[in-house]
Simulated assay, not measured.
Amino acid sequence: MALPKLYMFDASPPSRSVLLTAKALGITLDLIRLNLTKADHLTPEYLKMNPQHTVPTLDDNGIIIWDSHAINIYLVTKYGKDSFLYPEDPYKRAVINQRLHFDSGILFPAVLKVIMLFVRGQANSVPAEKAAEIQEAYEFLEKFLEDRQWMACDNVTLADFSLISSVTTADVLVPVDQSRFSKLNTWIKRAEGLPYYEANKHGLNIFRKRIEGLFSS
């Protein structure tokens, strides 16, 4: 059977969260890198798979799934040797799901708004009101970490994979203040120490270089 295909974009936080999940599970994916500037995500073939034309999209031998959170749950459910990253306990799973919804509904949209301003040439710095949205998200994340080392449980879970890719991207745009968000900073460093963190680092560096180029122009 062929390897699952992941249609992705290196700088994309959602794509990087799937790479983290795959690395943690020991899954090898066939990575198909899309060039969004050339509208690879708008071809008839891609739209047939994913009418929302988002990245990433997973093609697991004809099983098509998009949205990184759905992909990650699918991967750990199908390929995970245990439920460590997505525990079966109803309460733990509910907390993880809440954090995933926080990423998809609050944090990542706030980051994406700024990115799209840059992509459209409408800004080369972060507007104050957009920075305030990201700072508010940081405040919630700091509270999530009040009684735990990881975002949802006592151990790393899928919630951390989604949030670390988004938070480190947001940090490029609106730096996480170390004195104001000490727990969040400690969590970032803890995630950076994971043996598979390199899966996030490569694309993050690409994103950082592009943003730094805009800031300096």
Rank of each mutant, 00 (worst) to 15 (best):
I115F: 14
R16K: 11
Q98L: 12
A152T: 04
P175D: 09
V114E: 04
L20C: 10
R208C: 02
R148N: 10
Y91Q: 15
R148E: 06
N155Y: 04
T77G: 03
A170Q: 05
I206Q: 09
D103M: 08
L204V: 03
D177W: 10
L194N: 00
Y74C: 10
I188R: 15
G203T: 03
P127T: 02
A22P: 06
L31W: 01
L163W: 02
S165D: 05
N200D: 15
Y86P: 01
E45M: 07
P56I: 04
L173V: 12
N61T: 01
H101D: 04
F84L: 11
L75W: 06
V167D: 01
H69Y: 02
D147K: 15
Q178K: 14
Y86K: 00
Y86H: 08
T168M: 13
T77L: 07
K201Y: 14
S83R: 08
V114I: 15
W187R: 01
L58I: 08
Q149V: 03
N205A: 01
R16Q: 08
V156Y: 13
P87M: 09
E146G: 00
D60A: 05
I206H: 02
V18M: 11
S166K: 00
Y138R: 00
M49T: 04
L173R: 10
V119F: 13
S162K: 00
P44G: 10
G193H: 07
M8I: 09
T28S: 14
S15F: 09
I71P: 10
L20Y: 08
H53N: 13
L47A: 14
V126F: 11
A94G: 13
A131R: 06
I64L: 14
S83L: 01
H101K: 00
F9Q: 05
L117G: 14
N155P: 00
E212K: 02
R148C: 08
E198Y: 09
R208F: 00
W187A: 04
D160T: 03
S165H: 01
G80Q: 07
I206W: 00
T186L: 13
T37A: 14
F207K: 01
V119K: 12
L107Y: 08
Q178Y: 06
N205W: 00
T57W: 14
G121E: 10
I71T: 05
S83W: 01
T169G: 07
Q149K: 08
N185I: 05
R99E: 06
E45S: 12
L75N: 05
D177R: 04
Y86I: 06
D103G: 03
A94C: 12
I115G: 03
R180I: 13
V126Y: 11
K143C: 07
Q149G: 15
F161K: 01
R120Y: 11
S217R: 12
L107F: 13
V174W: 13
R148W: 12
A159C: 08
P56Y: 07
L58C: 07
V119M: 13
L42T: 02
I134C: 09
I115Q: 09
P51S: 07
A94S: 15
H202E: 12
F9E: 02
A110W: 03
G213K: 05
P127K: 02
G193R: 05
R180Q: 15
I206K: 05
Y138M: 02
A2D: 07
K38L: 15
S162I: 01
R93D: 03
I188P: 05
L214H: 02
I206N: 02
